[in-house]
Design a protein around this nucleic acid. Sequence first.
RNA 1: GCGAGCGUGGCGGAAUUGGCAGACGCGCUGGACUUAGGAUCCAGUGGGCAAAACCCAUGAGGGUUCGAGUCCCUCCGCUCGCACCA
Length: 877
Amino acid sequence: MPRRCVTSAAMTEQRPSYDPSTVEKRWQAAWAKERAFCTTGRGEPFYVLEMFPYPSGDLHMGHVRNYTIGDVFARYTRMQGRDVLHPMGWDSLGLPAENQAILEKVAPQVRTPKNIERMKAQMQRLGLAYEWERELATYQPEYYRWNQWFFIKFLERGLVYRRETQVNWCPGCNTVLANEQVKDDFVCWRGHPGVTTRTVPEWAFRITAYAEELLKDLDQLGAWPERIVTQQRNWIGKSTGARVRFEVVGRSDVIEVFTTRVDTIFGCTYVVLAPEHALALKVTTPELRPQVQAFIDKMRQKDRIERTAAGAPKEGVFTGAMAKNPYTGEAVPIWLANFVLADYGTGAVMSVPAHDQRDFEFATLNALPIRPVIYPKDGAALPSPLEAATTDDGIVKGSAQFSDLDSATARDKMAAFAKERGFGEAAITWHLRDWGFSRQRYWGTPIPIIYCDDHGAVPVPEAELPVRLPDFDAIELTGQGGAPLAKLPAFYDSKCPTCGKKARRETETMDTFVDSSWYYARFLSAHDDAVVVSKAEAAKWLPVDVYVGGPEHAVMHLLYFRFWHKVMRDLGLVTSDEPVTRLITQGMVNASAFRCPTHGYVKAAEMREQKEAAHVCPKCGKALVVAVEKMSKSKYNGIDPMDLIETYGADTARLYTLFAAPPEKDLEWNPEGVDGLYRFAGRVHRVLAVHGERVRDAVLPKSQAGLPAADAEVRSALHRTLAKVTDEVGVRNHFNTAIAAMMELVNTLTDHRLHEEACPIGAGVIREVLLTFGQMLCPFAPHLAEELWAGAGGDGLVCHSTWPKADPQAVAKEIITVAIQVNGKLRGQIQVSTSAAAPEVIRAAKSDENVSRHLTGKTVKKEVYVPGRLVNFVVSG
RNA sequence: GCGAGCGUGGCGGAAUUGGCAGACGCGCUGGACUUAGGAUCCAGUGGGCAAAACCCAUGAGGGUUCGAGUCCCUCCGCUCGCACCA
C-alpha cells in the first residue's frame, strides 16, 4: 500500500496538512486524560455492547468492523444526551489459549495479560470510546468465581445435573474428542485409529426447562434480525404430537414412540428403535442376536453426524420381536435403524411407510408392507402402488372409529383415546437438548464440586469460592490423557464439605460459553466483590439496548445467554425477560483470495500490486483462481488493521469499514476504495486548514435571514446534510449513506470554493460548517471531528457536545423540481414553488415544451399529481 | 430436502411509504497545475446514437397499477443456517 504524501497545495502554502497520526494521538491522549467515555449519571441510560473478543493478541478486520459499528452507536447516542454505557472485556479462557500454551510452553496466565494489553492498545489506537474502568477478563478468579457461584445457584434450583452422554473417545489419546477432531475411518486428528463412541458422565444445564419460554419470548425480539430469530426458533424446535406405548409381544417390555402423525397409526406396519435404545438388544430373539449385536457395534463406531446425515443410506436389522399396536391390536415387527436417534423424542418410532418418506424408503428396502390410511381431501385416488410417501394431511380411512375424520381432528381424538385407555397421550418434543458443559480441559473455570464417598457430589460452600485454577507450571499439559487437573493431587485432594472426610475435587472445567452468558451483567458491577451484579444497576441498565456481533453466534451464545438471563431473573438479579433489546449482526469482511489449483493460496497483497495478467502461481506459472472469500490467515488475503492505521490513520480505517457496506451485509475489502475515504477526510481537513484560524471567533449565523445567496446556499446544504445524517444514523442505522451525504456536502463546499483561501463565503457560515461537520463526523471519524471542533473554536470535546438540530428554515426548499411523465415516461422537469397548488403545477407542466409535444393530438384521460414529486398525464389517441 | 436472505453499471453500493433508477465511492477517459504525478483541482462516465430528441435497461418470464428495482405469481442463479427431528 503506498504511503500517501501531503498535498502540494498545502505544502506550498505552508499550511498544516492532514496528518492523521498526529491528530489521532493528540485526541486519544485528550480522551484518556478527561476519562471521556465514562458514564455520566445524567440522561436516560443506554447500554451499547459488542461481543467481547478472545484475546489472541491482535485485532483483525472483523473486530475493527464489529467495534466500529458499536462505537458509532455509543458516540451518537451519547451526543443525543443519553447516559451511555459502553464497556469492553476479554473472553480469555478456553481451548485456543490452552493449545497455544501447550505449543509454546508458556503459561496462559502469563500470555493472556500480555495479549490483552496489546489488543487493548490497538483498540485505543482505533479511537474506540470504551469505559475502560469497567474492563473485565474471564480468566481472572474475580470473574470466574461467579461462574462457580452461578453453578451452585443453578444446582440448588435443579438446573444443573449430572448425566451420561455419548462422546467420541480416542483410546490413543485417552480423551474425549469433538466431532471435528475425528477424521474419516475413525482416525483421530493426531492419527490414532479406533475412535469410538463411549458413554461418559458429564454436567449439564437444564436449558430445556426454559424451552417454552425461550420460544415464546422470541416474539419480544422484534428488533433482532429475522434470520437469527428464525434460527433460534428452529433450533428450539417445538414439535407437537403424541406418545404411544406399544407392548412387546410375549414380554413385559413397552416401547414408547413419539409421533406428530398419530392420525396415521392404523397404517403402522413396523416399529424402529435407535441402536442405542435400552430395549434394542433386550427384545432381540436369541437366534438374531449376533446380527443385531454386530449392527449396534457398527453404529457405535460412527459418530452421530456421519450416521445421521441426510442422504446417508438407510440401514437396519430385524430383532425378531413383535410389538402390539394398541389401536389395532396388530403385531408388527421391531427393527433397529441408523436413522432413528436415541436422544430425540423417545428414541423409537412407529413407522408408517405410506405417509412418511423415510419409513417408505426403509420399507421398500426391507420388503415391509405399505398400507395407506390417509386419502386426499378432494377424493382423488392414491397411486397404486405408491411411488413415494404422501405426507399431506387428508381424510383418515381404514381406521375403525376414526375413519372419515380429517387428519387434524383425528390427531386430537386419537390422542384423547390413548389417554383414556392409558396407552398414550398428547405430547411435545423439543429439538433443543440440555447443555452439556463439562470440559476435560485445564484453561477453564473449575467446577465447584467435591465427591465424597458418603455424600456424593457436594457443592463447594460459597464462602470458599473461588476454586482457583492451579498454576500451569504444576501440570504437564499435553492435550492427551483426559482432564489435566486429574493429574494433580494437590488440586483434587480435598475434604468433604459435609463430613470433612477425605474427598476428591471435580477435575473438569466449564465450557467457556458459561463465561459469555452473563458478562454483560458483570460490567454493571465490575469491581463489586459482594454481588455478581447489583440489582439497582441491573434495573438501571438492562436490558442491553444495542448488542453488536457476528451472526455465527445465532444459536449457541445467543441462546445460552438468553437462558442465563431468565435464570438470573428468577434468581432476582435482573427484572427483564430478555438480555438484549436490539441485536445487530454484522457481515463478514471478505477480500480477494488468490489460489493456485496445485500449490494453494498465494499472498493476495503481492498479487494486488501486479497487473491482472501477472496473476499466476509463482511456483508453476499457472493462472490463479481469484475469489472473494472471508479474510483469513490461511488464505493470505487478510489486511492487518494496524498496517492500515499506520498508512491512513484510524479515522480512514473506520470510515471505510462503515462506508463500504451497511452493517448487516458482507463487506468486500477493496484496497483502492480506502483511498477514497482518505481523500474525503483530507478534503474535510483542508477546509479547516484553510479557514480555521481565520473563522474561529466569527459570529455564527442564527438563521438564513440576511445571508448573501451563496452563504444561504452553503448553510442550507449543511443543514440538509445534518437532517439526512441524523435520520440515517439515528433512525435507519445506515452508516454508509450517512457518510455519502457528508461526501455530497464536501462536494458542495468545493463548488463554493471552501477549499480555497479566496472563498467568497462569510466567516460565520464557514465556522458553522466546521463545527457542525465536526459533530456529524464524530461517531465515524472521531479524531478528525475533534480537530474540526477545536480548530473552529468549539467548547470542550466534540464527543461531549450535543448533537445539533437542523434549522428547518435552512432545510426547507422554496423551489422544487417536479418530474413530468406522460403515460409513465419521463418527458420533462419543471421548477415550481413549494406553495404552488395542484392546478398551477399541472398548468405549468402542460406548458413545458417537450411535454406539450407529447400531449398534442392526444386526449388527457387522467392527471396524477404527487405533490412535490411528479405529474403523470395519462393520455390516449 | 427444509428455512432465511440476496440478484441493480466495469466494481462496492444508493433509491426510506409504489413516484425522476444508478446517490456516494472506486475504477476508467479527458483536461488544468506541474520537472514529474500514483498528489490536488476541473469535466465526463449504464447501453444504443455523432447528437437534441428518442429507444432499451434493476437475474428471466408473466401479472396488478396512471406509474414497479420496490407488490403478486412462475422460473433461474447465488449465499447462509439446519440437515433422516419421527
